[in-house]
Each structure stands twice: as C-alpha cells, then as structure tokens.
Computed example of a mutant assay.
Amino acid sequence: MPRIPDAVAVASLDTHRLIVAVPNEGPAEITCNLPRPVAASVLRQLADGLDSPAGRCDTALATGRPCPVHDVPASLSEGMLAAGQQAAEGFARGIAQAQRPAGLDALLDHVAAAMTPDDDEHRAAEEPPALTADDVRDALAFNADDRDQVLATLRDVLLDTTATRTPEQALAAARVLLEAHARQVAALVEAHYRATRTRWGLSRSTRGLLTGYEGARKIVTAYADGLADEQALAEGAANEQVEP
C-alpha cells in the first residue's frame, strides 16, 4: 500500500514566484514568473546554501536552531530578514535531519544553466511587450462593465509597468483613451438633453438650453472623431513601414 502523506502543500504562481518540484522519478518540473536570469541566480544561491556550513554545524544539528556562530547575520538587512526565520524552523530541521539526495547540486546547476539565456534569441524573448493601441482598446472592452470605463482603463494602463512604451506608443494610447472619454462625455450631454426635453418639453424658454446641449454634444463628438482619424492615419503609416 503506498504511503499516504501527512499533509499536501498546494502552491501556485499566485502565491510563489518560483516553484521547483523534484519527483522520485522523472525530470524536475519548474514553474516560474521571474525573469530567467533572476530565477537562475536564485537556484544557484540555493545550491551555494546547501554547500555552506550554515545550519549544518554540530550546534545547529543538536539544537535544531540557527548556530550563533555560523548563522549570524552578516548585515543589518540580513538581521531583519532573520526575524522571519522562526516560520522556517520546521523546514530547516527537516533538511538537517534528512539525508541529502545524491546529485542535488548537479541537478540545481543543470536547471540553473538551462534557465540562463545564452544567446540573443533568448534575450529578445525576455524583453517585455510594447504597449499598443490595441492593448488599450482591449482594456477598454475588459472594463466595459465598470462604473467609469475610461477611468478604470487609464488606471490599468498607468499601473502596467511591464510594457515598454515609446513616445509614439504613448501618444497612441492617449488618443484612444481621450477618444473614449470624449464619446463618454458626449453620451452624458445627450442623456441630459433628452432628460431636459422629456421633463420640460420643447418651448420658447427651453429651446435655447436644448440647442446649447446639442451644440456641445456635436463639438465633443467632432473632437472624438478627430482623435480617431489621427490614430487611424498613424496606424496606417506604421503598417506601411512594416510591409516590405
């Protein structure tokens, strides 16, 4: 009968940045949302830590606690990090008491080497994507049910620090957002126009007010149409430069 574990830990990239699973049989599995060089550095630090005397001297093995000589923090920042070490004491004791798997250093070195980019193709793949006008349009569609669609999209665009943006790309994003905002304002003016006309009707006293509403709506709509035309021309020119 196979052994049933006492507990099963569930980890995902929602709670962890790097997950390495080493089964009893078969290759190791790696799930990661870190840049490849950073992940490789973390794995090498793990390998170096296993080779160091920290936590494996006679005092640490006897007490199950960090050794005051070998494990003393080397700096104030490390001392602050050591304050959370009590949460990891159970794991440290298990590592100290368990027999170290054969070939673990080789496994970690192999995994780290495999994750390290060694050519321009890998480096290009790691470059973050650029912010495009279509990305902004997709964000507007995603926030369509939000109380303020344009405001929510502007928030998302400003918070997205992973996407690179050139001045031209930033200008395109601004055009798309301002066009959407202008159409939003035009819709509000139109709604106010209809509400006023429904409540008070069209008379000599309301004609001037309603005419003003209608004129304001047309001005804002024309501004939105102009932004849309400018963006269409910019995208057309960019496409012509890309095509052979």
Rank of each mutant, 00 (worst) to 15 (best):
residue 213 Y to L: 11
residue 157 V to A: 08
residue 175 R to L: 12
residue 157 V to Y: 02
residue 170 A to F: 10
residue 191 A to L: 11
residue 173 A to Q: 06
residue 148 D to L: 01
residue 162 T to C: 10
residue 201 G to I: 04
residue 239 N to A: 13
residue 165 R to D: 15
residue 229 D to P: 13
residue 239 N to M: 06
residue 210 L to S: 04
residue 238 A to Q: 07
residue 221 T to C: 04
residue 230 E to V: 10
residue 215 G to W: 08
residue 233 L to V: 12
residue 212 G to S: 07
residue 201 G to T: 00
residue 198 T to L: 10
residue 163 A to G: 08
residue 177 L to T: 00
residue 227 L to V: 01
residue 241 Q to A: 13
residue 153 T to A: 07
residue 196 T to A: 13
residue 139 A to T: 15
residue 226 G to A: 09
residue 165 R to W: 13
residue 225 D to V: 01
residue 214 E to W: 07
residue 200 W to P: 06
residue 184 Q to T: 05
residue 233 L to F: 14
residue 151 L to D: 12
residue 185 V to Y: 09
residue 219 I to C: 11
residue 186 A to K: 06
residue 156 D to N: 01
residue 167 P to F: 00
residue 215 G to A: 15
residue 143 N to M: 10
residue 143 N to H: 08
residue 152 A to Y: 02
residue 174 A to T: 14
residue 174 A to Y: 11
residue 190 E to Y: 01
residue 178 L to N: 11
residue 190 E to M: 02
residue 174 A to D: 10
residue 242 V to A: 12
residue 189 V to A: 01
residue 173 A to D: 04
residue 154 L to D: 15
residue 202 L to E: 13
residue 167 P to I: 06
residue 169 Q to T: 02
residue 240 E to A: 08
residue 172 A to P: 01
residue 235 E to N: 01
residue 138 D to L: 10
residue 179 E to D: 14
residue 173 A to V: 09
residue 147 R to E: 09
residue 156 D to T: 12
residue 160 D to T: 01
residue 146 D to N: 15
residue 159 L to Q: 10
residue 202 L to A: 09
residue 215 G to V: 05
residue 167 P to Q: 02
residue 182 A to C: 06
